[in-house]
Design a protein around this nucleic acid. Sequence first.
DNA 1: CGTGTAATTGAGGATGATCAACCAAGGTGG
DNA 2: CCACCTTGGTTGATCATCCTCAATTACACG
Lengths: 217, 217
Amino acid sequence: MTPITNCVGCPVGDASNVGEGDRCPMTDRRWKSGAMLFSAGEPASAVWFVKKGTVVLSKPADQPDADGITWAVRGPGAFLGLEALVRDTYVDSARAVTDVCACVTSLRELEAWLDRKHTAARAVLQCAVQAQVDDSPRRASADGSAVRRVAEWLLDGGHEQEWHGLPRRLVAGFLGMQPETLSRALASLATIGAVEVTRRSITVTNRNTLTQAAGRH
Amino acid sequence: MTPITNCVGCPVGDASNVGEGDRCPMTDRRWKSGAMLFSAGEPASAVWFVKKGTVVLSKPADQPDADGITWAVRGPGAFLGLEALVRDTYVDSARAVTDVCACVTSLRELEAWLDRKHTAARAVLQCAVQAQVDDSPRRASADGSAVRRVAEWLLDGGHEQEWHGLPRRLVAGFLGMQPETLSRALASLATIGAVEVTRRSITVTNRNTLTQAAGRH
DNA sequence: CGTGTAATTGAGGATGATCAACCAAGGTGG
DNA sequence: CCACCTTGGTTGATCATCCTCAATTACACG
């Protein structure tokens, strides 16, 4: 989750041989916390690469005003909107939850780049698979009790990284539960001494107890 | 879901320029229905490309004997085990649910191929993103009542394609519910006249009613 | 025609969602 | 500096939903 500050060292930039005088097809842009990068259903014509900050992906809600369920977090090093490669529209909405710096490129440019550069597709592939793998365990944890899921999530260390300081309602949605349930689950973990919880922070105090609660053998 | 019969027309073969005398790095193998291709946690040293048949991906179960929850289906045109690119071990288990024909290659060969062939990474990327997109809507349907989820799934036409004839317990696991609940949900959809259900077949009789049940506006 | 497996049906109980009230904290304006 | 309002988090009570366990039925197989 360390920010990417320039093109040398950035996977996209490296794949473009920026260091050797070549040009990266993607250009920087910034979003304020809370801003939408793109919405589900919009024509998919651009692709993003996150360099700094955190973005959450969510499904379209039934009511157009409310947000859907957050199902993934993306930080520095992740691509957004790659579905443009295989679809006409985006499948989910991306919203910045911190101030975000990301590189953008049009689908057309991206495709030209992928065709031109030997290493480009390889680099993108790497990132895409990484994202897939990161999401995958989360899905598995969709079963089990609420307490168990929360414990599992705490053990993954998710809270220390990207989630630190994020609104609880997002965390709850991500874990597939209501904010109230998350609150109760945390309270329950606090009573067995696994964590200490305040309104704005979660501290793991006893990893063993937490592991027990997660039901890992 | 149409089987891929030879290397010309196969994305992998095409990316290897097989038609122009080049060689594809992947070699055919066959599995009987029920066989495991690989298990979660095993050292990730090979990658598969499905040409014919259906494979389900599942998470490791708590008890080593039982299967975990099926969370995805892969048919012809999908890669399996791509996590080898970014991890040492497989994150889930792949089991053939029909007779399966798939091409295999070692991670080493795959990487060499990706580096050598201009179009290779591009082709793999395309497949990986496609899989990601296919999985993504399923996850969204993880909320809503059981009946709603089943209706949604029927409308997606999933049952006509890869799932046709698959054991119900797998379908249930995939939809995030118990076989009993699936059974009840189907019964409930049958009473409102949306579907006709026998022990081994599901027929959509009234698409409108089904859409209603799915809660789509 | 038995036998075993998978699907169904039923009853009971645990879990989480919902609705509502309450509480902490930050920002704003007087 | 303090009342006020707004936002987000917690707690409580109730209820629908789904899981569990058990018994029964359908179907494929030898």
